[in-house]
């Protein structure tokens, strides 16, 4: 098996790069545990989603084309984010429609781009999950992961293999946390109020930690929990939890 390693290009995402590098390293550890050969294209920055969702199509296009070029040689592109992988898989074709010569390459990229847990569960078929955790967790489904990438069962199946971890579902795990990218900055008051419902839902499970697959939701939920005075509930990215890197 080792001589037939899956060649994976890791798209780290701009938020992980800046805010929480441990998620990137967790992803590498998991992919390597699943027998993949991981490369991290050095020039990568951002998938362009902030510009795309802010209506700056030209800026989004230039960043999208950059991603398409950077990952051209990777057999698979794996992203520790439902949102950024969804951007590539569900939106690049529309965004780059004005560049018909790119079309084949864009479609090829979309077809081999995966959200991390989806890739681990369904492609690389990770056998042994390294993570250990003592306590109860609840999983928040990020909107893009769930509705653009079909991520629902994969993280739960993998979390189920984390030694010592008990999963307890919240009442509405599919309910948006209120992040919405620049929405959280432009409409902070509404966004925080939506996050409140999520925080209440998390609290009602009594879980020690909330686990999720997108850094945007993570910053939002963690930020709101802290502002509400909840210092007890931990917030982890699913990669950190699966890789056993919850202390870093």
């Amino acid at each position: 098996m080792s001589d037939q390693k899956l060649r994976v290009g890791l798209f780290v995402t701009c938020l992980v790069d800046l805010m929480r590098p441990s998620i990137g390293f967790s992803a590498i550890r998991l992919l390597e545990a699943a027998g993949c050969e991981v490369t991290v294209p050095e020039s990568q920055t951002c998938c362009g989603q902030p510009a795309y969702n802010s209506g700056d199509r030209m800026a989004a296009q230039s960043l999208a084309r950059k991603v398409v070029a950077e990952f051209r040689d990777c057999a698979y592109v794996v992203v520790p984010s439902g949102s950024c992988s969804g951007m590539i898989r569900a939106h690049y074709a529309e965004l780059l429609a004005e560049f018909p010569s790119d079309r084949a390459e864009v479609e090829r990229l979309a077809a081999r781009t995966y959200e991390l847990t989806d890739f681990l569960a369904n492609v690389a078929k990770l056998q042994r999950v390294p993570g250990k955790f003592t306590g109860t967790c609840t999983y928040h489904d990020s909107c893009s992961g769930l509705r653009e990438m079909g991520v629902k069962a994969q993280p739960r199946a993998l979390l189920g293999q984390v030694q010592g971890l008990a999963l307890k579902e919240m009442a509405t795990p599919e309910y948006c946390c209120g992040f919405g990218g620049t929405f959280a900055v432009k409409y902070g008051e509404i966004s925080a109020r939506i996050a409140d419902r999520k925080c209440e839902d998390i609290a009602s499970t009594g879980a020690d930690a909330v686990v999720l697959g997108d850094l945007g939701c993570m910053l939002n939920i963690e930020g709101r929990l802290k502002r509400r005075g909840d210092t007890k509930t931990k917030v982890y990215h699913v990669a950190e939890m699966l890789a056993g890197m919850t202390d870093e």
């Binding site: 805010m19 902070g188 709101r224």
Partner: peptide, 13 residues
């Protein structure tokens, strides 16, 4: 920044 009107921002590493 509207973000901190209603929540904190976890600091980068």
């Amino acid at each position: 920044n509207g973000w901190t009107e209603g929540r904190d921002m976890p600091a980068p590493a």
